[in-house]
Design a protein around this nucleic acid. Sequence first.
DNA 1: TTACTTGCAAAAACTTTGCAGGCGC
DNA 2: GCGCCTGCAAAGTTTTTGCAAGTAA
Lengths: 136, 136
Amino acid sequence: MLGVLADAGFSDTRARRAVVSALCESRTGVTPGLLLQQARVRHAGLGQVTVYRTLEILERLGLVRKLHQEDGCSAYAPASSGHGHPVICRKCRSTVEYDGCAIDSVLRDVSARTGYRVESHWLELFGVCPACRRNE
Amino acid sequence: MLGVLADAGFSDTRARRAVVSALCESRTGVTPGLLLQQARVRHAGLGQVTVYRTLEILERLGLVRKLHQEDGCSAYAPASSGHGHPVICRKCRSTVEYDGCAIDSVLRDVSARTGYRVESHWLELFGVCPACRRNE
DNA sequence: TTACTTGCAAAAACTTTGCAGGCGC
DNA sequence: GCGCCTGCAAAGTTTTTGCAAGTAA
């Protein structure tokens, strides 16, 4: 992810490395506040503002995606590919991406029923991850 | 919508009528701030806090749904039925609901590929409404 | 060196809470 | 009349902005 940043013309700084590492190590979505805490383990002097600014860059480059959850819409998770949808465990919050978007038939149905020409969509899935299922 | 409020044990007050009317008349999603402006046409003394509190009730009763858009996640739109998905015009912002959720096959695919047991989902669609298509 | 980055502090925006008075029933 | 409801004011939270100092290239 740092490589992509460099390719896009952004400097390789200690602050950004700390944010990116913390983000990638987290198996769940992280809010800017939590990300600050976790990234400070690597770079004690890190400021909240830099976290916001780094997230903004990463989002613009498509490297992270915002998660929208019951308790807020400010969490971010790494985005594996151009088009994907987060699948979130409601027990442990672990988050993975679903890429094989087999949703075309749904889009056609929406178009047919509403008259809207559908150009994009946003899908998020909630459930229970394999590990949590084993502990049920 | 006011009837449902009464049935659920809430008083029929002037403030709530103003909020509900303004919400129903709007063909797009409305934020709490905008809703205050529009509802004050009917009830000049209305306060922002009451708008928040009314929206909270309506959401709990399933009468309104939150919209998540590029520019924020605090807009609300009337919810037609138990399970539906908003379809939003990116030009005029007009918003309708798509109810015929033909998405089961997608959910099965997600389950198969990620191992997560999918229990619920959240889908939002963006495109161009019939009226805006005619003006293109 | 030069331009991009950073972190602090302050401001702004948004949402929630406490409370005395008002209103529906 | 009782208890729910309201609006103001204040507090809390989150995010953005301005700016001087620091750092990558």
